[in-house]
Write a protein that binds this DNA or RNA. Sequence first.
RNA 1: CGAGGUGUGGCGCAGUCCGGUUAGCGCACCUGCUUUGGGAGCAGGGGGCCGCAGGUUCGAAUCCUGCCACCUCGACCA
Length: 495
Amino acid sequence: MAKGKKLTTRAENYPEWYNELVKKADLAENSEVRGCMVIKPYGYAIWERMQAILDQMFKDTGHVNAYFPLFIPKSFLSREADHVEGFAKECAVVTHHRLMASPDGKGVVVDPSAKLEEELIVRPTSETIIWSTYRNWIQSYRDLPLLINQWANVVRWELRTRMFLRTTEFLWQEGHTAHATSEEAIEEAERMLGVYAEFAENTLAIPVIQGLKTERERFAGALETYCIEGLMQDGKALQAGTSHYLGQNFAKAFDVRFANKDNKEEFVWATSWGVSTRLMGALIMTHSDDEGLVLPPVLAPFQLVIVPIYRQDDEKELVLNKVAELAAELKAAGIRVKLDDDDTKKPGWKFAEWELKGVPIRLAVGPRDLANGKIEVARRDTKTKEVQDLDDTFIERMKKLLDEIQFSIYERAKNFREENTTQVDSWEEFKAQLDKPVPGFIFAHWDGTTETEEKIQAETKATIRCIPIGNPAEEGVCIYSGKPSRQRVMFAKAY
RNA sequence: CGAGGUGUGGCGCAGUCCGGUUAGCGCACCUGCUUUGGGAGCAGGGGGCCGCAGGUUCGAAUCCUGCCACCUCGACCA
C-alpha cells in the first residue's frame, strides 16, 4: 500500500487534503472508469454502518424495502415535464444490447443490428419507474399509505466529480411514498426530514439546519423540497439529505388514482426522500483533522483499537495473552474492537495508521503497563493520551469515553458552526463575509424572487441554502434589491 | 463544456528545453540479521514495451503530427 507519511494540511490546500485523506485512510480511490470511484473495504464498512442505522430508522417509521429496475424506458422520464428537464442533461443512455467482433479484427464494437426499439436510461432517480409501478398497486384508499424505500445505485453524468461528494455513479437510498391526502404526504416529507436530521446529529455527529429550498433549488418535479444543511470546515455548506413533497405531479404523470372513502376517484399524493454516499464526504469534512479521519464512535467500524507492544518472544506471549483477554471483554461489553497484532508493523506505524483511519480510542499495552496494572488510553478526537489503571471499572470507563467522544465531536462541530454563522444587513457586508477564508452560514434578508437569487449567485457564488424551519418572521429589506422582506434566509457557498 | 496541467516499475517524482552506453531517485515489495513505548536500521534482491498510434533520425522517454486518458480550477448539479 503506497502511502506518504503526512497529509497535506487543511490550511495548505483543503481540497487536496480531502482527496489525500480519502485515499490514505483507505476509504475510496478513483477507478478506471471516468467519474466513478471504488469504495474500499474500510470506507464501505462505514457506509454499511450508515445503512444499518438508517434502515432501522426507516423500518421504525413504518417503511419497507423493495427494489426497482436500474433501467428506465426513455418515455417514462418525459412524463413529468419538470422532472425530465431537471435530469435530461445528465443521463446515461443504453441504446444497444449486443457487441460483435470488430471488422478490423481488433476488439469488439457495438452491433448496429442490436439497436433498442426504445432507449433505456440508467436511473438518475426512480420516481418514474416507481410511479409507473404504483399505478398497478393502488386502487383504493385501503392501499394507502404505501411506504417504500429502496437501497440502490444511481447514475448522474456530472461534468465534474469529486470522491463521495459527486460521482457519476453513487449509492443511496430513495424512499417513495404514496398517500391519500396532501396533509399526510407533507407530514411524511417532514417526518423523514426529521429522521435525517436525527441521524445526522446523533449518528454522524453533524449539526444540521433543517429548512425548505427556494423554488429555484427545488427537486425537479417537487412542490416543496426540504433539506438538511451542514457546515464544512472550510466554511462551505453541504446538503446532506433531501425530502420532497411531490404533490400529485407523479400520480398525474403516471395516472395513479385511488377511490376514497366516498368512492370518489382522486390522484395519489407523493413524497420522495434520499441520502447518498455523499454523507461520507460530509462526515470527513466535518470532523477530520490534519492527522486524518475522526470518526464518531456510533459509526466507527472499529471503536477501539488495541496496539500490543513487546520486545522479545517471552514479552510477546505475555502481552498478547493479556490483550486478547481484554479484547474479548471489551467485545462482550458491546464495543467494536480491533486487536492489531500484526507482527510486521511497529507500534509507531500502527499509531499513525489508526489515527489516519479515525478510530476513536486507542489502547497501547506493553510489559511496563502489565507490570504496573496500567494501560495507555489515547483519544483520537483530542489527540490526548493518559495512562490509566487497568482495573475492573475499565470496560465501563471505555464505554463512557465512547459516549463522551460522540458528544464532544458533535459539540465541537456545533461550536464551529455557531462561530461561523453571521447575520448581515447590507450588500457590502454580505460580500465581505463571503470573501473571508471561512464564509460560513449567512442569514440575510431576501426579496423572495428567483431573479434576485440568481443575481446574487452570479455575483458572489453564494446560494440560498434554505429557509430554515421555524424561521422567525422579521421585517427587513433585501440586501440586494432593497425590496421588503419578511424573514431572513440562509446563504452560503455550497458544495 | 471553458481554462490550465499531467501521463515514466504498485505509489510519488527526476530526466524531456539541448536526442547518444544498461532510464534514475524516494516510498512500497521480497530475503536475511538486528529491532519493536510515535510512521526502524543495515545488507542483498525483484519489478519499466517511458499513455497510444504514426513520423523524423544511424539512434527517440526526449523532436514533429494526431489521438486518448486523468487531475485541478470555473460554469451545471445530490
